[in-house]
């Protein structure tokens, strides 16, 4: 079955690209559905999901243990989040940034070796799988919040054919809240796993510290939306700052500093 994974992934990439260009070139009035980019994206996601299931079945575990698999999985989470907002709220081109990040990730992953690595005993626990799945779902939702935050500011500056400010604000708050919940679940799984693997549930390792920082930051944001002065522009700015913290936690630490969560 594994021989199908590359054609499936290439097909997903092509469909995502067509959808991206579709949303980019034909920005409809807010609330109107642009059918064929949505169909392309859904078909791409279907093929991406089939590929994920094949890899999962072949490996006997959810393969998220090396750089290729994490890029592959993160890009799947991004499309999932986009489709959720698209089917529920018809965000269309307002979520374009998420599709762009997805294309970038998949584009970088495609030339890599898709071979499934042998599962080492350290990672052979459902806690690891839960930790990764929820962290990427959280990151994907924070990416969506960033995109909506930027659009909120753009809309304020007069950019047309975007969702209403009120709607953008509401969706941004939802993305932050859902992302925070996912990240909380990721932290819980991570803490229990750390306890059974290392004998303590909180590590002072830089990656763990920054995960706590991400969690605290978004916990703060879950409350900031109740404060009138922070609603709207302030919240959009916070979403952008939060995404910078996420980027540093996911990429910066792995690339710039040494940690126990290396990138490959």
């Amino acid at each position: 079955m594994l021989q199908y994974q590359t054609p499936l992934l290439v097909a997903s990439f092509a469909l995502y690209l067509v959808a991206f260009l579709g949303y980019l070139m034909r920005r409809p009035e807010p609330g109107m559905v642009l059918l064929w980019p949505r169909v392309c994206l859904s078909l791409g996601f279907l093929s991406h999901s089939v590929c994920l299931v094949i890899r999962w079945l072949e490996a006997g575990y959810l393969p998220v243990t090396n750089l290729f698999s994490t890029q592959f999985f993160f890009s799947w989470c991004l499309v999932l989040v986009f489709l959720y907002f698209e089917y529920r709220y018809r965000i269309g081109s307002s979520g374009l940034f998420v599709v762009a990040v997805n294309l970038l990730l998949l584009g970088v992953a495609l030339p890599r070796d898709p071979a499934i690595p042998v599962l080492i005993p350290n990672l052979d626990t459902p806690l690891f799988t839960l930790h990764i799945v929820f962290s990427f779902l959280g990151y994907a939702l924070f990416t969506m919040a960033f995109s909506l935050g930027v659009l909120y500011l753009a809309r304020q500056l007069g950019m047309q054919r975007l969702l209403e400010l009120r709607q953008l604000r509401k969706l941004n708050e939802e993305a932050i809240f859902l992302g925070f919940c996912m990240f909380t679940l990721c932290m819980i799984a991570g803490c229990i796993w750390a306890y059974i693997a290392w004998g303590y549930y909180f590590s002072w390792n830089i990656k763990s510290l920054w995960s706590l920082i991400v969690w605290l930051f978004y916990a703060g944001m879950c409350h900031a939306k109740f404060i009138r002065r922070w609603q709207g522009t302030g919240y959009a700015l916070l979403s952008i700052a939060g995404f910078a913290v996420v980027l540093f936690t996911y990429l910066g630490i792995g690339l710039l500093l040494e940690s126990n969560h290396p990138l490959d």
Partner: peptide, 21 residues
């Protein structure tokens, strides 16, 4: 107060993580 405290802790943790490193 919760937001002020959470922000201060976050800033201190950012500073501290760099000192640790």
């Amino acid at each position: 107060l919760a937001i002020v405290l959470a922000s201060l802790i976050t800033l201190l943790a950012i500073y501290g993580s760099l000192v640790i490193h």
